[in-house]
Design a protein around this nucleic acid. Sequence first.
DNA 1: GATATAGTTAACCTTGTGGTGAACGATCCG
DNA 2: CGGATCGTTCACCACAAGGTTAACTATATC
Lengths: 103, 103
Amino acid sequence: MNDPFRALSHPIRRGIVERLAAGPATVGEATSGFGVSKPAISKHLKVLEETGVVKRVVVGRTHRLSLEPDVMSLAADWMDRQRALWERMFDVVDEYLKEDKPQ
Amino acid sequence: MNDPFRALSHPIRRGIVERLAAGPATVGEATSGFGVSKPAISKHLKVLEETGVVKRVVVGRTHRLSLEPDVMSLAADWMDRQRALWERMFDVVDEYLKEDKPQ
DNA sequence: GATATAGTTAACCTTGTGGTGAACGATCCG
DNA sequence: CGGATCGTTCACCACAAGGTTAACTATATC
């Protein structure tokens, strides 16, 4: 359960997550059209798997991928928490940023 | 407005964001106690600023930092969207992952 | 003016990240 | 069996990330 934000820090990995959010898929289905080689894809999948964002089950020669919602929730919860905080402090900001506040 | 997720991919930068979510602060206030040198902090701040997550106003010899909620919202919205999707497809998953689904 | 304080920039090093082509492993299909 | 398909691992490369120390800029303070 190793830092889901790291997993989401690359656009290709977010793309994969987006597709899997619509439902499970094989590697081919979930990763076509990103314009990189297969080894590159394989590494991105490894990151998603290591961070616990994606689960993989090998069936025949295909690998079936699915999102692991618990881990994704950790990141989503953090964002929600931050948002709740910052939305409360709009008014304070401008004042703080100008020098008018002497102390 | 360059990939807020990249900005959030490092625990120190998330720590800085957490503190700024509680209200604006100077560099010293927002970054004390992370156990790294000042140049390291300075680089993290640069990333947060380049990605648009944090705004900086130089006042005297101090730099006042504040969160840029619009950019943070982009990331938060994305997470909300994903969450809304994956929460709808719980039931389909297990079936897909087992071989029982032949076609 | 001298010194302390807030913070950055410069130069450098080590490790991680993201990409490649080539070869391989395993399964499916004729 | 022979070939096509799905996907990985291997060996390699370029460069970005994250850290350091040392030096610097600029403001504040006495």
